[in-house]
Computed example of a mutant assay.
Amino acid sequence: MSYTLHQLDVFACVAKNKSITKAAKELFMSQPAVSIQVKKLQEHFDIDLIEVIGKQLYLTDAGVELYNSQKKIKNELKALEMALDEFKGVMKGKLSVVVVSTAKYFMPYILGAFRNESPQVQISLKVTDRIEVTSQLEENECDLAVFSQLPDGIALEQIEFLSNPLVLAASPKHDLANKKNIQWKDLEEHDFLIRETGSGTRLVMERLFNQENINPKIVMELSTNEAVKQAIMAGIGISLVSRYSLSNEEKMGKISVLDVNGLPYVNNWKLVYPKGKKLSPVARSFIEFTKSRDILAIIG
């Protein structure tokens, strides 16, 4: 009995998640179907690849070896596809991009404009949290990722392609909504909302608090930018948010940008990939697209 690439992929997903349940959810398969594929691999190699102790799944030494080999095989297959695409001389293939949640406000427009010029390219865009984006980079599961604040511990190539102005936003009914030239010390008595630990926006916000030597009251921690905006509109507090995420709410008069001395704080959005990674022709073409086009005009 021979094994298949599909079985290797299923096993790799189990190994990555250390859970058949999580792997089944990610692969849109039933748990029994995932278990069967792993069992067939074990039968083929005549060795245990996983073991369950208590309720925790672990890889055996053989399982670790197979998982590492599967990643090498996937990389070789990607390299083969890239080489064949270059032989054909056609901008055709797949582009997988994974982005932190705030980038969802502009990346669809940029990717859409790119595909208008290269209609044979298939694009996958995954929007998730910073931890998952970092994991996708480490596991080589995407072509490119998008951050504003780079993660620690990974050697990355980076291409800045868009400014990221961060502003303090509040409900239009907030006491500070119509004040001019607000000083940071004036903010200390007001309630603040903050993103979850690890969020790039939170990292900048904490840096600004330290820089301005203030210790404001944090009344709520939220896991998404959308949740932060809803809490701002509900009048719960003020928070630092990307200007790109506020266009609709500002136009509708639901959120006000505060006139704070020294803001907006501007950093840059970056396309990143691991150092040493060989990019596909499509990924290289997309990077060149972001360098040669007016991105601000594209996102409106």
Rank of each mutant, 00 (worst) to 15 (best):
K254N: 11
S124K: 15
L156F: 04
T197L: 14
D48V: 06
Y3H: 11
L27C: 03
L80V: 12
A79E: 08
V98F: 11
S124D: 08
L246A: 01
D259P: 15
S171A: 14
S223T: 11
I214H: 04
S35G: 01
Y244F: 09
V100I: 14
Q149S: 11
A177P: 00
E160P: 11
D61V: 04
Y244D: 10
Q136G: 06
K185I: 04
I159P: 00
N267F: 06
M82R: 12
S148F: 12
V219E: 02
P264W: 02
L66I: 05
G276V: 04
K180C: 09
E26H: 10
I298H: 08
R243Q: 15
F45M: 09
T134F: 04
I194Q: 01
I73D: 00
K251S: 13
T21S: 15
K185D: 01
K278N: 12
K254G: 03
S148A: 13
V34W: 02
A170G: 01
S30K: 02
S19P: 07
K74F: 12
Q122T: 10
T4D: 00
C142N: 11
G300Y: 06
G300E: 10
Y265L: 04
L203T: 03
E65H: 10
H174T: 03
E138T: 02
Y109N: 05
Q70G: 01
A23L: 04
F11M: 05
K78R: 13
E43M: 10
S292L: 08
V204Y: 06
R115K: 11
V127G: 02
L77Q: 10
L168P: 01
K71F: 04
